[in-house]
Simulated scan of single mutants.
Amino acid sequence: MDDGDKIRASKNITIGDIAEELGLSKSTISRAISGKGRISEATMLKVKEYIRVHNYKPNVIAKGLAQSKTYNIGVILPADANLIEIPFFQSCLMGICEETAIQDYDVVVTTVKEDDITFLKRLIHNQKVDGVILTRSLVNDAPAKYLKENDIPFVVIGSCEDNDIVQIDNNHLEGCRELTSILLMSGNHSLALLAGNQNHIVNRNRYAGFVKAFHDSKLSMDNSMVFLDMNNNVLIDRAVNQIMERHIDCIVCSDDLICSRVLAKLNEDNYSVPEDIKVASFYNNAHLESYNPLSHHLV
């Protein structure tokens, strides 16, 4: 029997067929397949050998009904993710798919907005998944609140204040503290910060790291040069204008989306980086790898 014949045969084989062929009960076959329940080693080996030869694969739907499982994991992506963030979420999704496949699970992907979790509710209401992975944590986290209230197993990629929630994250606060400390120790005592949406925990942690670096260095931070919720180019451009009027040493950006706009604005206004002002970013995706500040130096 070639591989094609095995695949076709496996689609038609049922637990009943295996039981009849081996002279065993259906319950015995089920116990052998699941590995649960009392069954002799000889019978277990007999069933497994038959399954191997005939390339039998349990029907996932039937298996799910028997165990009250869907064998699906929901992955919730932010609907407002920008081009800078997409590679991060792609990497997360690839890792999730790789691990779920090992566990014989599939992935169901949907999106949510900060103020609209309709798609998530539909996924749960229709019992499409056994658990959920949230790929962003929020201060007012409606997705996490909804899942917790409905006793749905879930984890968060990010940080949150609820210690009952399983969460996985980088240490953004410490990383941003370290970068800011390096800038301060390098003689850049006047720093400006441009940070993104403060409803996103990651941005709050990066801001906290910036503040902590000044505290640890016993240097005064100029609060007038801290610009939060920089969610569009108009706000960023306005902040850059104010910063350049103050002759600040370095602009620190909480992510590369903000950083790329800062660099574009400086270039439009004929400023040179790093001669006229230095720029640093708390993020490190590939978006800025090809950007050479020296190419914008005026001669």
Rank of each mutant, 00 (worst) to 15 (best):
L288N: 03
K46H: 07
V279G: 03
R246W: 02
N223Q: 13
V166R: 10
C253N: 05
I182A: 09
K128S: 07
R246Y: 05
E41C: 03
M44E: 13
D17Q: 09
M185S: 15
I51L: 08
L235T: 06
D249I: 07
L65W: 10
L179W: 03
T135A: 14
D222W: 04
R122E: 14
A213E: 07
D5K: 15
D169Q: 14
S34M: 01
T111M: 12
D80C: 01
D151F: 11
D276S: 08
I51V: 09
D130G: 04
V252R: 04
A195E: 14
I201K: 06
N171R: 08
L184N: 07
A79D: 06
I168K: 08
D162I: 12
E21N: 14
Y207K: 13
Y291C: 06
L194T: 07
S34Y: 00
V47M: 04
E178Q: 11
R246E: 07
K113M: 09
N150E: 15
T100F: 01
A42F: 01
K63D: 05
L288A: 04
A19T: 01
E99T: 06
L123R: 06
D80N: 08
L179D: 00
N199M: 05
T28S: 14
Y105P: 02
L193M: 12
G95T: 03
N170A: 15
D5N: 14
D164C: 12
C259I: 01
A208F: 00
N163P: 00
D237R: 14
G209N: 04
I76N: 09
K218F: 02
S272F: 04
I124A: 03
A144Q: 06
D169N: 14
V132C: 04
K57R: 14
N72T: 00
L298D: 02
F89Q: 02
H247K: 15
N197P: 00
V262D: 04
N285V: 06
N233P: 01
S34R: 03
I168Q: 03
S224C: 07
L83V: 11
E49D: 11
M94S: 08
V226A: 08
V211Q: 09
D256F: 06
L24S: 05
P143A: 05
I18W: 11
N203F: 15
C97L: 08
D106E: 09
E245L: 11
H125G: 02
K265M: 05
C253V: 06
H172D: 15
F214W: 10
A286D: 12
S260M: 08
H287A: 14
R206Q: 11
F88K: 06
V202E: 13
S290I: 10
S68H: 13
N205I: 04
D216P: 01
P78H: 09
A208D: 10
I13K: 06
N163S: 13
A192G: 03
H125L: 10
V47C: 02
Y146S: 02
L183H: 07
K57S: 13
A32V: 12
N150W: 04
L288W: 03
G95V: 00
T110E: 11
I243D: 02
P293I: 04
V262F: 02
Y271E: 09
M185N: 15
